[in-house]
């Protein structure tokens, strides 16, 4: 299993998609950093504390939301062919026939790809948080918990993409994973609107979408961890599509972990029975 783990981790660095993701991340973080720099400069000049209390958290939310989007993009694109492309090219034939059980191949690939994506997410999270911290002075007491959940986001997407990759082609697994991610994103926004206008149907729609793909609820949880509702401006700070009017419970995090485990086990089950 560790051979496959090391190999998958190394393989992730050889893919062109990593270079593309690094360039996109560098461009995004460059623009984000520049935007934060000038926004903070302007607000500091005006010495408007109220404005700073509202805008600074919005900058953080913006960074985490789009940073998470880039991480998710890399997760789906790089995981779409994690099994299927090896089957399609035939390179898996020489691997399966070696003295290792099929579950070891899935476990190794899951770990290798998971560590790679989690590392990428951790760097993205660290840079975004650092920019906000050094420019605005905002403090994040539970930053480690938030960071771990940020790292979990791409793993959730990867677990789903891996299962589809076992069952289907690379194109299909990428397309299905993107559709599910879209459901989560749209569902999250719908839920936010539901809280804004107090509409139960919209709120429930968001909850259902979170059960189908819990990656957006993870984001909302991160937002609440980073900005706990402990001041009178919390409601305003959490408004808008990037905020979280209601904090997802710890059970949602537990559900997400079980969700990942279930998809991993399904991948093992179907791959063990698959004719190559």
């Amino acid at each position: 299993m560790f051979t496959i783990f090391r190999f998958t981790f190394r393989e992730a660095f050889s893919r062109k998609i990593l270079l593309v993701s690094i360039i996109i991340a560098a461009v995004f973080l460059g623009i984000f950093g520049t935007g934060v720099h000038f926004a903070v400069k302007d607000i500091a000049r005006s010495q408007n504390q109220m404005l700073a209390s509202i805008i600074y958290p919005q900058l953080l939310l913006f960074g985490l939301y789009f940073g998470g989007f880039i991480v998710s993009f890399l997760s789906i694109i790089s995981s779409a062919g994690i099994i299927s492309s090896d089957i399609e090219s035939g390179s898996i034939q020489a691997v399966i026939t070696k003295p290792l059980a099929r579950y070891e191949i899935i476990a190794g690939k899951f770990l290798g790809q998971g560590v790679f994506l989690a590392s990428y997410a951790a760097i993205m999270f660290a840079v975004i948080s650092s920019i906000i911290y050094y420019k605005t002075g905002m403090r994040f007491p539970w930053i480690w918990q938030a960071g771990l959940l940020f790292m979990l986001q791409p793993i959730v997407l990867m677990s789903v993409t891996m299962l589809v990759s076992v069952l289907s082609s690379t194109v299909a697994s990428g397309a299905i994973a993107f559709m599910l991610y879209s459901v989560a994103v749209v569902g999250g926004v719908v839920e936010q609107i539901g809280y804004l206008i107090n509409n139960l149907y919209l709120k429930n729609g968001g909850i259902v979408s979170s059960l189908i793909m819990p990656v957006d609820s993870l984001y909302r949880k991160i937002v609440h961890i980073m900005m706990p509702a402990n001041n009178p401006l919390s409601a305003i700070q959490q408004m808008g599509p990037f905020g979280a009017s209601a904090e997802p419970s710890i059970w949602m995090v537990a559900y997400t972990l079980l969700y990942v485990l279930a998809f991993y086990l399904l991948s093992v089950y179907y791959f063990s029975r698959k004719d190559i």
Binding site: S89, G90, S91, Q93, A94, T97, K98, P99, L100, A101
Partner: peptide
């Protein structure tokens, strides 16, 4: 699985 330590395989498409 263990017997595969003693088995070599060249697939037809050698990818």
């Amino acid at each position: 699985v263990e017997v595969r330590r003693k088995i070599g395989f060249l697939p037809e498409n050698f990818s």
